[in-house]
Amino acid sequence: MEHRQLVHFLAVLDSGSLTAAAQRVGLTQQALSKSLSRLENELGGKLFERGTRGMTATRLGESISEYARDIIASAGKLRHTASAALGLERGRLVVGLSPISAASLLGKRLTQFAQNYPNVRIDVEGGIDRDFVAALHRGELDIALSSQVGGQYDGILLEQVFSEPWGVGGCVNNQALQDAQSISDLADGKWIIGRNTDLLDDIIAETFSNAGLPMPKPGIMTTSVLFSLHALSQSDFLAILPQSLCRDFNGILWRDLSDGAWISPIYMMRRRRAHMDELVSVLLRELKG
């Protein structure tokens, strides 16, 4: 039985889909299926049943799940202990970053940490909160930074470490956006609508309501930040975006038209029972500035 087989098993268990699990662990579906088959052969039974709703754990799969999580977590603790023994001269950290966190000042502070400690290897994994929760429980991440936190998660510590301002983004040549004094001046705008946090959605809706406007109807709906930025730079569409994503993107004008009301907190996420070694402690201190 190999460590990676348990990682593959938990990826399928947490996602409920062979396709999603394969993407998460960076394998083809065929390779992931073979890994699961080898584990099933060693254990002597099937771990999953395939149905219309995806992959469902069998009784055997359910019975070993907590043991598998403990083994993965113990392996992570072993790595942390080794890093602590080596001090800040050598070691390894695995950090999850959401797109907004990566573009914010936190991304720059993480880069600065890597420059200050050149012998510490830092692995950065992209994703959003639900990806990070599963990876933290599997012991695959030391910490994660995300603005898209849907609430409290069992076994996960949340701590706000930064705040990101949001505003209206558009092409630098968009005259309406250049001249706008308030959100009401963009009542006739065409909008690209993406995914915000629930709290921010409420605040944005309140701003539009106070201006006597309904929430903008999407001309384009997307979950791709990169598409949004490219589309904005080449058209007269508008979008509500964090300042950090627009700041360094050529051709984008960003305006605060909410008088500073659109603020999204960025949270540090960490497994509640995870060992806090010196590397993680120093990184958190530097991320907080």
Rank of each mutant, 00 (worst) to 15 (best):
V94F: 01
S264Y: 01
D185W: 05
P99I: 07
Q23K: 09
S235F: 06
P165E: 01
L145W: 00
S224G: 08
A11D: 09
T81N: 05
L229S: 05
G76A: 10
A103N: 04
I156K: 07
S17R: 05
F9T: 00
G126T: 10
M55Y: 03
L158S: 13
T56V: 14
V133S: 07
K77E: 03
K108T: 12
S224T: 08
N116P: 06
K34I: 01
L232S: 13
R92T: 10
A68Y: 08
D236F: 02
E62K: 14
K288S: 04
Y67C: 07
W262H: 07
F48V: 05
D123C: 11
P218I: 11
S98T: 13
D198S: 14
P265T: 01
G219M: 15
P118G: 09
G87R: 03
N119H: 08
L27K: 12
D188T: 06
F249L: 05
R255I: 09
Q178T: 09
R195Q: 15
Q29D: 11
A180T: 03
E159P: 05
Q178A: 13
L13H: 05
Q243N: 07
R272M: 15
L200D: 01
G16A: 06
L200F: 01
E278T: 12
I71T: 12
R195S: 13
A144L: 05
S264I: 05
N173F: 13
A73K: 11
D123S: 12
V7Y: 01
I204G: 09
V25H: 06
Q30P: 02
A85G: 13
Q175T: 12
G44K: 06
A144G: 13
S147P: 07
P216K: 07
E159K: 15
V124Y: 04
L105H: 08
